[in-house]
């Protein structure tokens, strides 16, 4: 996609909103960083490429009092829809600029493997990093492998053809997901103990999550109710994460921002993906798939519920 579609779209939307959330290029690292555009001049710096991994919907609940434009990939659009469904964001205050997304690169992983701060270039089906190159499929974010949201659910203005994107490549079969699936329950208990012993309780998972909108009354930190203490140890941290995961039931759109934000690399998506799968099996519900859906745990269906067992 060229910026020829995106920049005019942002300028057009800026005529009716206060601010547009998008990306610009970081001069230091060469990858995309989130940016806010207030004027048409600022919008000239807007970009969209496969390093635009961030889910910008996280900023919407904090900008409740302004009209906001937002550049959104298909998956980001689902978070926006879910925020509207939950009543956190009002539809008439936002304008969504849909962009065609070819799948985004796991920048953190790329840098970990090939050197921090290396310039990343995505061209011709391969990702180039200062002389070295790998096939795109090997370095995509995990969610892109199973992408079912290439066409954004809500779009006010499309920058480019959002419906004509390449199908996602097959998922990686040798990763942590397969190892986790093969573990026994006891092994999983040990696995999580070990993982959460590294948690430093920075709450980045919560801050990066678009659907964690409770802010100051977050049960991971409140004294009343006192679900979990503030001590940094595996047991308290595991409980804190269980609080978050249970609150994500029927909300999580699987954007992977929590896992990406985690500074110690705890594979939180193992739990959230499992929960999303359960919710979809039980209630045929995918968070953010439609503006008309009711969150499954805020309703019930006398005729269908209970036939599960």
């Amino acid at each position: 996609m060229s910026m020829n579609d995106l920049i005019p779209a942002i300028k057009k939307v800026l005529e009716e909103v206060d601010v547009v959330l998008g990306w610009t290029r970081s001069p230091a690292a060469g990858v995309a960083v989130p940016a806010r555009f207030h004027t048409p001049d600022e919008a000239d710096g807007a970009i969209f490429d496969s390093t635009c991994i961030h889910n910008l919907a996280v900023h919407l609940p904090r900008l409740k009092n302004s009209k906001v434009g937002i550049v959104a990939k298909g998956c980001d659009a689902r978070s926006i829809v879910q925020l509207i469904v939950e009543g956190e964001v009002s539809r008439d205050r936002i304008r969504v600029i849909g962009v065609p997304c070819p799948g985004v690169i796991d920048v953190k992983r790329a840098w970990r493997c090939y050197g921090f701060g290396k310039k990343i270039e995505d061209a011709g089906g391969r990702v180039h990093m200062e002389g070295r190159s790998v096939p795109r499929e090997e370095i995509l974010l995990h969610k892109c492998h199973q992408c079912r949201d290439q066409e954004p659910v809500i779009v006010d203005l499309a920058a480019g053809d959002v419906t004509s994107m390449t199908p996602p490549p097959p998922p990686d079969k040798s990763g942590i997901r397969e190892r986790f699936a093969a573990m026994s329950i006891t092994e999983r208990r040990e696995f999580w103990r070990e993982q959460f012993s590294r948690c430093i309780r920075c709450y980045a998972c919560r801050e990066a999550c678009p659907l964690c909108f409770c802010r100051d009354v977050c049960s991971m930190q409140t004294r009343e109710p006192h679900w979990t203490g503030g001590q940094v140890n595996a047991i308290e941290s595991e409980m804190a994460q269980q609080v978050r995961i249970s609150h994500m039931a029927g909300r999580c759109t699987g954007c992977e921002e929590c896992e990406r934000a985690c500074p110690v690399g705890i594979p939180l998506m193992l739990l959230l993906e499992e929960q999303n799968k359960i919710i979809e099996e039980l209630f045929a519900y995918r968070a953010g798939a439609s503006l008309e859906d009711k969150p499954p745990l805020l309703t019930y269906d006398i005729n269908r519920d209970g036939g599960w067992r």
Binding site: I185, T186, R188, R189, E190, F191, W192, R193, Q242, I245, L270, L271, E274, Q275, I278, L282
Partner: peptide, 8 residues
């Protein structure tokens, strides 16, 4: 249904 994933 979540319990097995949580290790319980």
């Amino acid at each position: 249904r979540m319990l097995p994933a949580l290790g319980i």
